[in-house]
Nucleic acid binder design. Structure first.
Length: 578
DNA sequence: GCCGTTTTCGGCCCGACTGTTTTCAGTCG
């Protein structure tokens, strides 16, 4: 998985943190942070770029290009090593404690010799911090609470879980008489694959009762802060919820602001400044007159800045603002573009719903076509047999004569450790669609794993590689494969890569979709549903594809059925390429 | 350290909340 871009970004971030702790100029710190973000989101592999090309990356200037070059060539940077020598290693870890920033981390180091979280705990226990300038008993107590909470790890949670919590909170707040509008914002609205905290925005002319009601919600474990327009609470599950109230005329600007990302917001504000405008959560204002020129709707704010409305899923400060300015922002795929689902399971293998129920749900969801892709015999625990598969095919053909979506009989093969697959080529030719996935042996060496995936991709009847990296959000990391090779082969052979919509998978993720697009890869946004309810997860997959800037044309299950069938007749594609 | 339809120098996003201060610094999002 290791891409040089990620290593360089990590190097730059370490630089930024060490600079901040050692009292470096704030704007220099931010320059490093911005460069780290630019490098991480840059489509090209940094290690393959010449020095002049490094300099051309936005927010990377001559100085940082030189340091990046040094890092790529030698694996280290002299100046960074010097900085490391000056700053004790533990100090950086202090920055992860909420409420302790670079200035105070430096203060406790210089005045109390604290260099690690353990030192900090000891000092807190002995009440030594309250003696420092700017500190008191309260700030010491708060820091102690923050350290305890950080230790009991209120970790990031998956998209699906956070969405459920947020929707229950909205149900509680919406009926309050003072509430005019309420929506979730933040990374949840951007549909990131994991969520650190939940941001909720309320439009109201009477915020006080709402703020009080938030502190009294049954899920609240502790109130972190409670002001007249902003309240932060910690839920019993350790999830932080921030609720902010603005007046209705500021709704759009506030929604924009609280949706983020931070990098996206900063870019918009810089754009505003250059136009003599000032953007805040209250609206877009003329600097000279302080007159509000936009704010009630997001679209107005973007339009006044000369931009089209940008999907929340694209707002990562990863080039979307520049692309929007130049009119080159792609029109990304939407849920409404999807005509069908190409990866689902029934109770014949590890699904929980019978075939008929899944098909009925697909019909209710408005699908034009629907593939059933139960597991194949080599995933032994699923007890699939050739006879069962053929019997299922007959039932599907019968059901297909009824009203509802066109039914495709497919299967999800198991890619063996050597890259071989279930069944022989002739039998596989009988399926309408074939998905192939890795389900075990994740720890093979990179070259073995790469060859394994390539063999499956090259197979004449494999149409889709399921959950290509096998990562589990917050759990298992992605398998170590040469993705550039995989992307090249997938594009060449007309094999789609899946964007698996299960919230614990979201695989490929948005970043990889964006990289794969550069190779001309096509995607299948699929639910991998094992139950009727999971068919609804497709919206998570769509959001993930959007994060990767995928358009309708990039996604094969937006195609009309006849066009999809042409894509699935893989050998024709290969012939066309030649 | 980066960047330029106001700039190759002088800027660099904006505001809420907390706690310690009597007017502001630090942190966060």
């Amino acid at each position: 998985m290791a891409r040089s871009n990620d290593a360089v970004a990590a190097m730059l971030l370490e630089f930024a943190e060490l600079l901040a702790i050692s009292g470096g100029p704030p704007y220099k710190v931010r320059a490093y942070e911005k460069a780290a973000q630019a490098v991480e989101g840059h489509p090209a592999e940094l290690a393959t770029l010449r020095s002049a090309e490094l300099d051309e990356i936005p927010n990377v200037g001559s100085q940082l290009a030189r340091k990046i070059r040094e890092f790529l060539d030698t694996g280290s940077v002299g100046e960074l090593d010097e900085l490391r020598a000056r700053v004790p290693t533990g100090l950086r870890s202090l920055l992860t404690i909420p409420g302790l920033g670079p200035r105070r981390a430096r203060q406790v180091y210089e005045e109390l010799g604290i260099t690690s979280p353990d030192d900090l705990l000891a000092a807190l226990h002995e009440h030594r911090l309250r003696e420092l300038r700017g500190w008191g008993a309260r700030s010491e107590d708060n820091l102690a609470a923050a350290v305890r909470e950080a230790q009991s790890a209120g970790e990031r949670v998956r998209l699906g879980l956070a969405l459920g919590v947020a929707e229950r909170l909205l149900q509680r707040l919406r009926p309050l008489p003072q509430v005019q509008r309420v929506e979730y914002a933040g990374s949840l609205r951007r549909m990131r694959d994991s969520i650190g905290d939940i941001d909720i925005l309320v439009a109201s002319d009477d915020p006080e009762p709402i703020m009080r009601a938030v502190t009294e919600l049954p899920v609240v474990e502790r109130v972190i802060s409670h002001g007249s327009t902003r309240t932060s609470v910690l839920t019993a599950t350790g999830l932080q919820v921030d609720v902010r109230v603005v007046a209705p005329p500021s709704w759009g600007a506030a929604l924009l602001y609280f949706t983020g990302s931070k990098a996206h917001n900063i870019q918009l504000r810089e754009l505003a400044l250059r136009a003599g405008l000032k953007l805040s959560e209250y609206g877009l204002f003329e600097v000279e007159t302080d007159r509000r020129v936009a704010g009630e709707r997001e679209e107005e704010v973007y339009a006044r800045l000369g931009l089209p409305w940008i999907e929340p899923t694209l707002r990562e400060g990863a080039g979307e603002v520049e692309a929007a300015l130049h009119g080159t922002l792609p029109e990304v795929v939407t849920r409404a573009d999807l005509r069908g689902d190409l990866h689902t399971h029934t109770d014949l293998t590890d699904g929980v719903a019978p075939l008929r129920d899944m098909v009925a749900a697909a019909a209710a969801a408005g699908h034009e076509y629907f593939a059933i892709t139960d597991h194949a015999p080599l995933l032994h625990m699923q007890r699939m047999t050739t006879e069962k598969a053929l019997a299922q095919r007959r039932r599907i053909r019968e059901l297909d004569r009824e009203a509802g979506p066109a039914l495709l009989h497919g299967t999800e093969l198991n890619i063996q450790p050597d890259g071989s697959l279930d069944w022989d080529t002739e039998f596989l030719s009988g399926f309408d669609i074939v998905v192939a996935s890795v389900h075990s042996h994740f720890d093979q060496p990179r070259d073995v794993l790469t060859a394994r995936l390539l063999r499956a991709i090259e197979h004449p009847h494999v149409n889709v590689i399921g959950h290509p990296t096998t990562r589990i959000v917050g759990g298992r990391s992605a398998i170590d494969v040469d993705l550039d090779e995989v992307f090249r082969a997938a594009a060449r052979t007309g094999t789609a890569l899946e964007v698996n919509s299960l919230p614990e998978r979201l695989d490929l993720n948005g970043e990889l979709v964006r990289r794969a697009r550069h190779f001309g890869v096509r995607f299948a946004v699929s639910s991998d549903a094992h139950s009727v309810a999971q068919l609804g997860n497709l919206s998570f997959g769509v959001a993930t594809a959007q994060r990767g800037w995928a358009t309708r044309d990039d996604v094969i299950n937006t195609y009309p059925l006849d066009e999809l069938r042409r894509f699935l007749a893989k050998h024709d594609h290969a012939a066309a390429v030649r």
